[in-house]
Amino acid sequence: MRDNRINEIKQDYDAIAVPKNLEERVKQGISRAKEKAQKKFYQQPVFWAKFGSCAVAAMAALTLITNFNAPIAQAMEKIPFLGSIVRVVSYRTYEENNDNMNAKISVPEIEAKNTSGEKNSTASKELNDKIKQYTDKIMEQYRADVKATEGEGKEDVLTDYKVVTDNSRLFSIKIETSISAGSSDTFYKIYHLDKTTGKIISLDDIFQKGSGYCNVITKEIKRQMREQMAEDNQKMYSIDDTDMPENNWQGITKDANFYMNEQGSLTFLFDKYEAAPGYMGTPEFTIPQETIQNIINPEYFVGN
């Protein structure tokens, strides 16, 4: 006994023809989500066990420092300065092809030299090994996908690298991977070598211990996201969604991908889907110096 008008609309609604390939598209969406869940493990940096929260990470670092302060200080003195010569000297490309599945993974080889011109093989090896471990995981995952689909799937995996910071203090190299299988995904891992110590560093190192930098940066990035959305209604970030709060971006963690841009400003690079719908691509956010100047270790903040 519903109203006629509603019934009329309902008839047209029921008559909406469902396209033949809808089922296939739905299944693609489902398998994509499952793949992504599986892939999570190799997107995590291999070396750093995930602590889960910034606070725990900072505490762990503090404990280490207090326990081993003296030996660390001694070790630091012994490390020769690398100077400014860190570069990519060559790369290898690993390629595998199946019917509709291809992987092309370029792995850079880095060489670090001390100011005297002498090769620092410890520093180079540590960085190269770490990158290789990471890219190996990507290749393994590709092979697992080939196996799982018996080579009948559709997948293109492309991994490449780019030096994103090369100033007097830091050498940062970005490993970029894009995977297309139905829809596409892009994710990054940036490695940083401290040229003065020859050590691989992380976000924790460039901030003062216990400074709560994750919260400060998260707040600033959210501010920029809101500002962009207010200025341009085509921009969208996964924050402040009260309908589906579980989809919201959870904020910066100590494993976040960052680099120093040419002005020496700290810049964060997001994976596709990390904090925005796919059409937003891989957004970047530069943190103004005044926002973080009280909590940084200033020696890392130098321009090119």
């Binding site: 809808l22 598209r25 739905v26 299944k27 693609q28 969406g29 489902i30 989500a33 499952k34 829809s183």
Partner: peptide, 9 residues
Amino acid sequence: VQDSAYKAI
């Protein structure tokens, strides 16, 4: 619909 299926899973 595809995007929804992806997100739901």
